[in-house]
Design a protein around this nucleic acid. Structure first.
Length: 318
RNA sequence: CGCGGGAUGGAGCAGCUGGCAGCUCGCAGGGCUCAUAACCCUGAGGUCGUAGGUUCGAAUCCUACUCCCGCAA
């Protein structure tokens, strides 16, 4: 089977690698144009492009697809049997979807129809879900609305971060894509409608990264920290300085200050100790901070942080 | 030329209006103790990122370079 692959981030390059190593003929790779990125805003190729170049696969990087006749003709000329799309970052118009005779296959990192959209992995962690998965589907013009082919479920660890889950799912996605292609080749691939009971996982916004000590419960804050690690990190302020939390847990230890716990403000540091780290009062429990990052600094363990940046008991995060 | 921060003993930081290199922790040895991650004493460990310059004298001022990090995407 001849394949054209479309995708951009590392999640996609895992799928590309999987089908490449499974021996499928990859006619070409379509990925987003190189973007200025990182310190110095240097132009950086996407992970998918890097892999393609390594394997001498032709790369196409259209700035836009809609009304781009030249690009459509290029793809048509390749005569792919199937187009695999994984986190490409652009909406494909009908004319593209109709090119391959076996259709366009998409790998989506959720158990559809739950979490259609851009950030399914992040939202599954943010919402504290116990399980999620990967789904392959036949694409249609809607946003992740196509008929489903295969699905694989995984459980989310209590302390698992978006980054960790991301990595696991990208590998599973690759395997599932290969399996999907095999079944399509044999003509035994199932096709299931999604139904109407769907939910959407939109792109994450900047504002949601701020911890709301008044409204959020200990578990919600923990989910926020996990869910935004390593993408942007949940943050709060201490004495006017921005502080990011990278790892927190709900304290199971008994804290001595039981008596006053109800009269102090949420976000107050109850215990600050070089050995045990810091404990913070929340709406409904005590949060233990494990990994932290100050302004202009790198992330470090709470113990390291406290040596050079003393935090007093009764300091307040806000 | 996107903006900004930094490079000081094993770790995290202070010192930077130039004048013997410091703090917290860790580490080694000793002491106290039934005991300890607690406490007390002692000690080891740094050519202050690299190369030049200014100066009687530079971690501290100037110049170039290397590396690291945050924002931003």
């Amino acid at each position: 089977m001849k394949i054209v692959f479309m995708g951009t981030p590392d999640f996609a390059s895992e799928s590309l690698k999987a089908i490449d190593e499974a021996g499928y003929e990859i006619l070409g790779v379509v990925t987003n144009p190189d973007r200025p990125q990182g310190r110095g805003m240097k132009l950086t190729p996407s992970p998918v492009k890097k892999y393609a170049i390594e394997k001498n696969i032709p790369v196409y990087q259209p700035e836009k697809i809609k009304n781009n006749q030249e690009f459509k003709d290029q793809i048509k000329k390749l005569q792919p049997d199937v187009i695999c799309v994984v986190a490409y970052g652009k909406i494909l118009p009908k004319e593209i979807l109709e090119i391959p005779k076996n259709g366009c296959i998409n790998v989506h990192a959720s158990l559809l129809p739950k979490y259609r959209g851009a950030a399914p992995i992040q939202w599954s962690v943010l919402n504290g879900d116990k399980k999620t998965g990967v789904t392959t589907m036949y694409m249609d013009v809607g946003m992740d609305t196509g008929d489903m082919i295969l699905k694989e479920e995984v459980t989310i660890g209590e302390d698992e971060t978006t980054g960790e889950l991301w990595e696991r799912l990208s590998k599973i996605g690759g395997n599932l894509l290969v399996e999907t292609l095999k079944q399509i080749e044999k003509g035994v691939a199932p096709r299931k409608k999604q139904g109407e009971n769907f939910s959407v996982a939109p792109m994450l916004s900047k504002e949601m990264a701020k911890i709301d000590w008044e409204k959020q419960t200990a578990q919600q804050i923990k989910n926020l920290v996990r869910g935004l690690n390593p993408i942007m990190g949940a943050y709060t302020y201490l004495n006017g300085k921005k502080i990011k939390f990278w790892k927190v847990d709900i304290a199971k230890e008994e804290i001595a200050a039981e008596g006053m716990i109800n009269i102090i403000k949420n976000g107050t540091v109850i215990v600050s100790d070089l050995k045990d780290g810091i404990f913070v009062k929340t709406k409904d429990g005590i949060l233990k901070i494990l990994e932290i990052q100050g302004e202009n600094a790198k992330k470090m363990s709470i113990q390291d942080f406290l040596r050079g940046n003393p935090i007093q008991e009764f300091d307040i995060f806000e």
